[in-house]
């Protein structure tokens, strides 16, 4: 971890990259739009995971549940005639945050492996439940109408800008958290929960707040995804990829940093896209290998590697660190 606020240069670069991403639709290519919208979506989800898994140290393996809840909140609103994309994002964020608070109070008492398993089961159980409830379209899913904004129909490219807004909010939110009392409290909990409690930090309160923020980021991404994809079913909403990509992205960029998730989203999407295009049948195999390599050689992320400069000794150091 590179200090609580992360490397200032890295944050500046991330902010500039976000600004540059505003101009992607000028290329007028549907493929490019979809590709970069994917980066923004995973970026937002990775930021969401980073708040709870990175800053707070509670490694969630079910954060996809917020994405799914956000997606279904937007899709349900749409089936009741409310297709305003701004309103959908807000509603999705609220729904995901409420879910995080209600479940967080019992589940955030668990630690380590047990928290990981509990969150994984929440995601699986949510997928199972929605697959059985007709109001959510069961396994057939829901297909909302095209998005509107303030009552007017909008072109499809608006889904790109909406995803940009969600990711920008997630980045800005992470920056704000990292600079606030909340952020310091979260890091204190991560480093030593008992000591943090002794210092007057209420761990339960802060952990629940962190998970709610985490949920809002994922939920917002889910709402926009529904309109970009114009269809949602349980298998898509709670896909394993959507669960694990954000984690690997945060790890690749730098866990518990402001710039890390966006950097990770860029690089991993690039790797993933290349593998898909060139090796469609053994794409997962390579992807699994990428995860193994990142975990073994870059457990502290690329940002730490850049900061450390003496890169080769760092590889060896990482490899030796946890061996018996």
């Amino acid at each position: 971890m590179i200090g609580i606020a992360g490397n200032r240069v890295a944050i500046l670069v991330a902010a500039l990259a976000m600004l540059a991403l505003l101009f992607v639709p000028l290329a007028k290519s549907d493929y490019t739009n979809a590709l970069f919208r994917g980066i923004l979506m995973y970026g937002a989800m990775s930021y969401g995971w980073n708040v709870i898994g990175g800053y707070t140290g509670y490694v969630s393996f079910g954060n996809v549940v917020f994405f799914g809840i956000g997606a279904y909140a937007a899709a349900l609103l749409a089936t009741h005639g409310i297709t305003d994309i701004g309103l959908s994002i807000v509603a999705a964020m609220v729904a995901a945050a409420l879910f995080a608070v209600v479940l967080g109070i019992p589940v955030l008492r668990l630690q380590g492996h047990y928290f990981g398993i509990a969150t994984l089961s929440i995601a699986l159980a949510a997928q199972d439940l929605i697959s059985n409830i007709d109001a959510f379209g069961a396994t057939n899913g829901l297909s909302p109408k095209a998005a509107t904004l303030f009552g007017a129909a909008v072109p499809y490219v608006v889904t790109y800008y909406a995803m940009w807004v969600v990711c920008a909010l997630a980045l800005a939110g992470t920056y704000a958290v990292s600079r606030s009392r909340l952020g310091y409290a979260l890091v204190a909990i991560r480093e030593n929960e008992g000591a943090a409690a002794v210092l007057g930090i209420n761990p339960t309160k802060y952990k629940v707040i962190a998970w709610a923020i985490s949920g809002m980021m994922g939920g917002g991404a889910g709402a926009v995804f529904v309109y970009a994809n114009s269809y949602i079913d349980p298998a898509t909403a709670f896909a394993v990829d959507n669960n694990v990509f954000p984690i690997v992205m945060a790890l690749l960029g730098g866990v518990g940093t402001v710039a890390g998730p966006l950097l990770g989203a860029f690089i991993l999407t690039a790797i993933n896209e290349t593998l898909w295009n060139h090796f469609p049948f053994i794409h997962t195999l390579f992807f699994g290998a990428v995860i193994v390599i990142v975990v073994l050689f870059l457990p502290r992320g690329l940002l730490a590697l850049i900061a450390a400069r003496r890169s080769w000794s760092l590889y060896v150091q990482h490899l030796r660190a946890y061996r018996v």
Partner: peptide, 20 residues
């Protein structure tokens, strides 16, 4: 190489293995 590593590391590593 990850026997004593934190949960995140071992979870992701074994997940990567399972994908592979």
């Amino acid at each position: 190489y990850v026997v004593r590593a934190p949960v995140l590391t071992t979870f992701l590593l074994t997940f990567g293995l399972s994908l592979l």
